[in-house]
Structure formats: C-alpha cells, structure tokens
Computed example of a mutant assay.
Amino acid sequence: MSGAPEGVHVERRGDALWVTIDRPERRNAYDLTMAQRMITAFESAVDVDAVVLTGAGGAFCAGGALDQLGEPDPAQLRELFTASWRLVDAIRSCPRPVIAAVDGAAAGGGNELVVACDFAIATQRSTFGQTGPRVGSAPVLGATQVMSVQIGEKRAKEMAMLCRRYSAEQALTMGLVNEVVADGELAEAVDRWLGEIHQLSPRYLEIAKVSSNLWWNAARADMHAGVTSLIQAIGSEDMREGANAFLEKRRPDFRGPRRDPNDTEPR
C-alpha cells in the first residue's frame, strides 16, 4: 500500500522541497494523478533552495504505469503520455536546482527523470536503464535526445535501444550521475549537496540553470513529436504484447502469431 493517497509525498525539509514517489508495490511507476502532483510541486518551488526527487521502498521510479498499456484506454493514455512530457519539462523549467536521489532501480521513464534532473546522486545498489523497445514503447522524453549530450551518442543509443541495465558505478563513469555513495548514506550525501547549494545565490543559480537548458530546449520539439507518435501508436500489437509480457513476467514475442483474447487459436 502507498503511504500517501496520491502516491507522492511533497514536503518541505529545511530549505529544500522533497518529492517522494511512493508506490513501491509497482516500483514507483506513476499514474496520471501522481504525475500531476509532481508537476505542481516542481512548478511551485520558488521559495526553496532546491528540490529533491526520490523514491520510497527500495526503488527510484519505473516510469509510467505499464498496467495501462495491456488493455489501453486511448483517452487515458493520451493524458498520461502528455503528463509525462509535462513532468520532465517541469523539472527542467523548475526555478531551483533539482537533485535526483536514487536508491534502487531507475528504469524506463524513471531513468529519463534522472536525465531531466540537474544533478543525480545514487547508492551503490542502484541500477539504471531504459525499457522502451522491450515493453512495446520508445523512450522519447530525454533518452533519445538529451541523454546523448550527457553520456555520448553511442552509449545513449545502446541504453535507449538495447534496454541494457547499468550499475551505479557504470552510470557514474558514463556521466549519468554525479556521485555514488554507500547504501544507507544517500540522505547524508543529499544534505551535503543541499548545504553547498545554500551558500549560493538563488537568483544566479536560476540564471545558470536556464542558460544550461540549451540542449534540452533544442530537443523539446523532438520530444513533443515523439509523444505524438506514441499517442498515435496506442493499442498497437507491439504495445499490447510488450506490456502484457511485462505484467505476466515473461519474455515478449514481437514476431510470433498474435492472439485475439476472444479466440482459442493463433491468428
């Protein structure tokens, strides 16, 4: 069960705003309501030094909830895809630095949240990676554009297209995260970063952040086009197969005969 009805805790701790995704039973995959709550938190963070984005229960975030893809409602998925786009953009548009505090798996859209954040600190047990083509989707909200700037084009394509998993130390070497700390020491490390940020001018930090969004801003039109493509593909055979395979904990078969749920014979 979630610790918050909305699945997201938003609380002020000292001079920082903490946004905690709290749906551990599904590895903190977010639904529309959760995405909207996070968007509001990032957009309204004007009287704090920084925002910390983290996950509860041993995971960071698994992106959008895949249970909505197996039997998709086009209207609901359109809202979720659009909210996901608004969420990553809200992180980049937030007037304060955003720190991803990663303890556990950052997968799929969760990995793209790390890409969107200004800084990222991870525990040694954390893992990173995309899931798109493996689950009948594509990572169009940062992994196929901005992540190339962060870790290099070849490595970004490897992560986005092959859906491999990477350790925290590998993520550090690639440049996806800023620091890796021992398990159990994440809060202390985040406090250290927040203390450093507290010594700086909020006004000029915001100017520096806005200016550093050059590559993100250049990629925004491509991200929007990517979301539009995903919306047009809602209900495709590959989407259904990938999502259902994930939920059923089996390997997807994107090239085999498709089954009509009302039929007993392969088509």
Rank of each mutant, 00 (worst) to 15 (best):
P261M: 02
G3D: 04
L87I: 01
E206C: 11
G184C: 05
A225P: 00
A50K: 03
T127F: 10
G184L: 11
I234Q: 06
V52H: 09
W18A: 08
T33I: 05
I197D: 09
E112R: 02
H224P: 00
S201M: 02
A245P: 03
I197P: 00
R220H: 08
K157E: 08
G152T: 11
G226Y: 10
G3P: 00
A221N: 05
Q170E: 15
A75H: 00
A75S: 01
A219S: 12
R12Y: 13
E188R: 08
E179P: 02
G175K: 13
S137Q: 07
D263C: 08
R27G: 04
Q150Y: 15
M1L: 02
L230W: 14
R12T: 11
A225S: 06
R37M: 02
R259M: 15
P266Q: 12
W193E: 03
G63S: 07
A221Q: 08
A189G: 01
D89V: 02
A245K: 03
R23Q: 07
T131W: 14
T127R: 08
L214T: 13
L247Y: 09
L80R: 09
A83I: 02
N111S: 13
G195E: 14
G14A: 06
L186D: 00
A168F: 14
M174L: 14
N178S: 12
D47M: 04
V140N: 03
E43G: 00
A29E: 12
V140M: 03
R255I: 01
M223R: 08
I207A: 05
T20Q: 09
R12C: 06
L172F: 15
M161K: 13
A122P: 06
G235K: 02
Y204E: 09
V46Y: 10
I197E: 02
R96N: 01
A168Q: 12
L247M: 13
G109E: 09
P24W: 12
T20S: 12
A171S: 09
D47S: 05
D183H: 10
V227E: 12
P95S: 07
I121V: 15
V177Q: 03
A83M: 02
G55D: 00
E158W: 15
S137M: 09
M159Y: 15
Q130T: 05
A100S: 06
A65H: 06
D263S: 15
S201F: 13
P95M: 04
F246W: 10
G195N: 11
L113V: 13
